[in-house]
């Protein structure tokens, strides 16, 4: 069976949806960070797969390298914020973040 672009995009969409739903329903910051990583990686699947169907340049593959690099930088900042939060609250649950209300 020939696997077309549609199948790859469907896979990417399922992964992205899983990440997005996980991000929205979970309260644990670490899990939410993982969900964001899952969403970014689903984008990589879509980019790399798409590049196979437009082979005249490597835009998709180059893009995916940048996504990987930026995801790492984002995780570094994110984990730093998680640690700062944990030091103050002794938890990483986001529903404990309730100081800023009006």
């Amino acid at each position: 069976m020939e696997v077309g672009l549609g199948e790859y995009l469907a896979l990417a969409t399922i992964l992205f949806g899983t990440g997005a739903i996980g991000f929205l329903i979970r309260q644990n910051m670490l899990i939410q960070l993982m969900c964001i990583e899952l969403m970014l990686n689903s984008v990589n699947v879509a980019l790399v797969a798409t590049n196979r169907f437009y082979p005249d340049n490597h835009a998709g593959q180059i893009f995916s390298f940048f996504v990987i690099a930026v995801a790492a930088a984002e995780a570094a900042v994110g984990l730093a914020i998680v640690i700062a939060f944990y030091r103050l609250k002794k938890t990483v649950e986001t529903d404990e973040a309730d100081l800023l209300r009006h």
Partner: peptide, 8 residues
């Protein structure tokens, strides 16, 4: 993800 869809 929107960018990837536009690329696709």
């Amino acid at each position: 993800f929107g960018s990837a869809l536009l690329y696709a």
